[in-house]
Write a protein that binds this DNA or RNA. Structure first.
Lengths: 195, 195, 195, 195
DNA sequence: GATGAATGAGTGTTCATTCAT
DNA sequence: TATGAATGAACACTCATTCAT
C-alpha cells in the first residue's frame, strides 16, 4: 500500500494555519491548503472530515496545549499567585510568539467557531479559563488580590485585551516589541488586581 | 424630511445588522437582507456598491457616532480625566446596549474588515482610539494616572477586553447584567491606571 | 427587470428529457442541460430545486397527462370495455411515439424514482394504473373479460410488457413498426383477457 | 476445492449484488462492497477491472445460468411446448425467488447495461430469449400456439411483464405470493398464445 | 429609482481507481 | 495477491452581482 511518508496530517494542519491566517477561514480554499501541504486535494479529506474540522482541530490542539501547561503552573506549590499570574501571561505570549500565523487564526476565527459549533468547542477553552480563574482566586484567598472584582468577568476582560494586542502584533510583528506589550499587560493587570 | 429612498437605505442597513449578527458576514445572504428590509434584491445595489460596502458603512457610522460623542466628552473643560474615562466606558456600553445585534457584528467582523480593507477602514476607528488616548494622557499630565504604562498599548488592551465582554453579553444578554460588567471594568481599569 | 423571454422552464425540461435519454439520469450533467436549453447553468436552479426535481417534474407531467386522458376514456358511457382497453393501449403508444426521448427516460428512470422518492412519486402513477384496472374490471362485470385473472397483477404485467417494447422501439425506432407492436399487444392481451 | 482467492472473487460479487440492490448501481460505493465482502478496497480491482465489470459479471453469470437451464428444457424430447413454456416461467421465478437482491439488480440495471455496453452484453441475453422464442415456435409448428402473433415481439412483452412483477415482489416480498403471480402469468400468457 | 430573473464563476466534497509496499 | 492511503478529475449547487424593463 501507499503509506504515509512524513506526516501528512500534520503538514495539512500547518498549511491550513498559514492559509487561514493569510485569507481568513471563509476565503481559504482547500486546494490551496493541499498545495501548500504538498498533497492532493482529496488527501485533505483522508485526514479531516471537512473544512470546519480542520479549524476545529487547530483550536483543539492549541487549547489542549495551553491547558496542560497552565495546569502545571497552577498546581505548583512553591509559586505564589502573583507569579503564577505572570507566568500565565507569559505562556500565552510565548505560545503565539512561536507561531504568529496561529495567533492570527486564533484571534480571527475563535468567535466564528464559538458561534458555529459551541458544543464541539466550548469545552477546550472553558477549561483553560477556569484555570486562570483559579489562579486569581488563589491570590484573593491569600489576601494579595483584592476582593472587589468579579473574577469571571475580569478573566474575560484580560483575555480579550490580550487577544487584541496579540492580533496587532501578529499582523505587524516589527512595529512593537512583544516584550514591551507583555510588561505593560502584566503591570496594568497586577495593579488592577493587587490589594 | 427623509425621502422614501432615504428610508430604504436605512432599512437595508438595519436589516444587514440583524442578518450579519445572526449568520455572520460570510454566511449572510444578500437576498435575506433585502427580504428583511422589505425591498427587492437588486435594490440593495442601488444603495450599496457591494456586500462589503454594507459592512463598511455599518462600521463607519458606528465609529463616527462614537467619535463625535467621545469628542464632546474629551473637550469638556469642567470634567476631570478620571470622570472622562468613566464616561468613555459608559459611552461604549450604552451604545451597544441599545443594539445588541450591532454589538455582535462589531465584535465578530471588525477584524475581518481591518484585514480586508484597512485603507478604507482604519481611519474611523483610529480617530476614536486617539481620543481615548488623549483622555488618559490628560490624566497623566494632571498627575492622577501613573506614567509607567504605555498608553497606546493599554488603550488597545482595554478596548479588546471590553469587546470580549460585550460579545459575551450580546450573545446571552440575560446571563449577566451589563451594569455589573461596567462597574467591574471601570474599577479594574482605574485601579490599573491611577497613581 | 430581466424577464423571461420564451419559456425557460419548459425549455429546460425538454432539454433535460433529451439529455437524460442520451446519457441516463446519473450521467447527465446539469451544465449540458442548460447548454441545450440555451440558458446559464444557474438558471436551471431558478426553476428547479435540484436535479432530482427535474426528473420528478418530467414524470409528474407525463403521468398527469396520461391520467387525464385515460380518465376521459374510462368515463365514456358509449364505449365498451374492450374498446376502452384498446384505447388505453393506443394512448400509451401515441404518447411516446410523439416523444421517443421521453419514452426512454420513462422506461429507464421510473424505477429509480420509485425507489428514491416513492412518497413524492407513487401517487401520480398509481392513479393511472387504478383507472386501467377499472376498465378491466368493467369488462369483467360485463362478462366480456374472464374472472380467473387477478386484475391488479395483470395490469402490472401488461404495463411492464409494454414498457419493454417501448424501450426497444425508442432505442431503435426504425427496426420495428410501432403499429405492428401495437397490434400484437392488443391481440395478445385481449386474447388473454377475453372469456 | 475453491482456493482462498476464488472465494474472494465470489464474496465480492455477492456483496455487490446486495449493495447494488440497496442503493442502485450508481449510488453504490466500491468501498462499501469491499467492506461487506470483507476485503480491502483495492482487492476489488484484483478481481474486477472496474465497477461496470462487476455489474456485467453479475448479469453474465445470471444469463448464462438461465440459458443453460432453459436449454435443457427446450431440448427435452418428451415435453410438449406448452409445458416447456410453463417450465420457462418457473425457471425465471425460481431463480429470483432464491435471491431477491439479484432480482432487484436485474430489474433496475439491465437497461443501463444494455445502453452503456450493448456490445459486451447483448449476447448473453439474446441467447436466452432465442431459446424462449424457439419454444413458442415449436408450439406454433405443433399447432397448439396460434400463428397470429409475432413471436419476437411477444417474447419481449412477456419478459417485460414478468420483470415488472418481479420488481414489485422483490421490493416487497410479503405483499404478494410469488406462487400467485406465477399462476396468473402462466394463465394469462397461455390463454394469449394458445389456439 | 426599483425590480427580480438571469447569470456564470467559483468551490467544497466525492469516489472510482491506482500503486508503492 | 492483498492492501488502503493517496489521488485528482469531476460536478451539483450557490449566490453576489447585473441589467432589461
Amino acid at each position: 500500500m501507499r503509506t504515509k511518508e512524513g506526516n501528512k496530517e500534520q503538514d495539512i494542519l500547518e498549511a491550513a494555519i498559514k492559509i487561514f491566517a493569510e485569507s481568513g477561514y471563509h476565503n481559504a480554499k482547500i486546494h490551496k491548503i493541499a498545495e501548500l501541504a504538498g498533497v492532493a486535494t482529496g488527501s485533505v479529506y483522508v485526514y479531516y472530515e471537512n473544512k470546519e474540522m480542520i479549524l476545529l482541530t487547530i483550536f483543539a490542539k492549541l487549547w489542549d496545549k495551553l491547558f496542560l501547561e497552565l495546569k502545571e503552573i497552577a498546581e505548583s506549590k512553591d509559586i505564589d499567585a502573583v507569579e503564577k499570574f505572570d507566568m500565565m501571561i507569559d505562556l500565552l505570549f510565548d505560545t503565539f510568539i512561536q507561531d504568529p500565523a496561529l495567533a492570527i487564526v486564533f484571534v480571527n476565527e475563535q468567535n466564528y467557531l464559538l458561534q458555529k459549533s459551541p458544543e464541539k468547542f466550548t469545552l477546550y477553552y472553558e477549561k483553560f479559563l477556569d484555570l486562570g480563574e483559579a489562579i486569581v482566586n488563589e491570590g484573593i484567598s491569600n489576601g494579595v488580590f483584592n476582593t472587589k472584582i468579579d473574577v469571571k468577568m475580569i478573566r474575560s476582560f484580560i483575555f480579550g485585551g490580550m487577544r487584541l494586542l496579540l492580533h496587532q502584533w501578529a499582523n505587524n510583528p516589527d512595529s512593537v516589541s512583544l516584550h514591551h506589550i507583555r510588561q505593560n499587560v502584566k503591570y496594568f493587570c497586577k495593579k488592577g488586581l493587587l490589594n
